[in-house]
Design a protein around this nucleic acid. Structure first.
Length: 274
DNA sequence: AGTGACACCCGAACGC
DNA sequence: TGCGTTCGGGTGTCAC
């Protein structure tokens, strides 16, 4: 669920808090979340300094002072919490991994059912991310580069937008929001799209992701005790999870359809096939 | 190359 | 209310 805006929000919030901090202790409550034996993971991380935090697509990379990286993917329903103590209503055991920092705060990784936190070499991390497409805001991904890239694809628009090889970071929610903003149906066939529509998709992609990130994305977990920012975009979604509600543009009820077990929310009136 | 099916996992939602 | 069952959703992989 966490997509580009959610992960970039985490990166922005975490960077000033954890850069330069040393990991003092590591708690692992679910061994499958990590990629090596718990004792190896713990002793390798203890004493390591976090240099900086990088986002690649929906991944977060914590760069460590020994050249290794901690690679995080929240997948479905994962979240991050930061503070001296966990969220009051949540037991520590609900968190799969907890990193204790040298300033008395802790980084809590929760909801990692399919998500993971892997300790990798620089090479290992690179290998893991080798198939990721460009970032939506990569300066090399110009309007022309994007429309060309999209134009090479066949098939339906939505499955292509969520394909991390096309552009990295777009998932179920924002693909629907982008299609709505660009006034095109998510089930439209890419070869049918006009050049203008592909150009609109490019600008909608950047506009929607930027607006969502500026409002804290749609995460439903607080980042810290006094956090009122994360999740602010939840009520700003135009179509996602709004089946039956009025389209904010034309008033037609939003429709939900499934394509290969994937939800698509759209306005059947003001979003078009081309 | 696109499409669909499946496995992974477990909290949440649902049904009785 | 409470217990058992089903479902969802990103990604990787595999078959067609």
């Amino acid at each position: 669920m966490p997509e580009w805006p959610e992960m970039d929000t985490y990166r922005r919030l975490l960077s000033p808090l954890v850069c330069g901090r040393t990991i003092q202790a590591v708690e692992v409550n679910r061994e499958k979340t990590i990629n090596e034996p718990v004792d190896v993971f713990q002793s390798a991380l203890t004493g390591r300094k976090i240099l900086f935090v990088e986002r690649r697509g929906k991944h977060l990379l914590f760069h460590l002072d020994d050249g290794h990286r901690l690679l995080l993917h929240l997948m479905l329903g994962g979240w991050i919490y930061y503070g001296p103590e966990s969220e009051p209503e949540r037991e520590d055991s609900r968190y799969q991994v907890i990193l204790e920092l040298d300033d008395g705060n802790r980084l809590f990784f929760g909801g990692l059912r399919l998500g993971y936190l892997h300790r990798l070499t620089a090479k290992g991390a690179q290998e893991h991310l080798k198939d990721l497409g460009p970032d939506p805001f990569d300066p090399r991904l110009t309007e022309e580069a994007f429309t060309k890239r999209l134009g090479k694809r066949r098939g339906k628009l939505k499955p292509t937008l969520v394909d991390q090889k096309l552009v990295s970071g777009i998932g179920n929610c924002y693909s629907d929001e982008i299609c709505f903003d660009a006034k095109v149906l998510p089930m439209a066939q890419i070869p049918d799209l006009s050049e203008e529509t592909k150009q609109r998709l490019y600008h909608s992609m950047r506009q929607v992701l930027e607006e969502a990130a500026a409002n804290g994305g749609y995460m439903d977990h607080k980042f810290s005790a006094d956090d009122t920012f994360v999740g602010g975009f939840d009520e700003m979604c135009r179509v996602y999870d709004r089946e039956g509600e009025d389209c904010p543009r034309c008033g037609t009820p939003i429709r939900l359809e499934h394509v290969s077990s994937r939800k698509m929310f759209f306005c059947p009136s003001c979003q078009k096939e081309q």
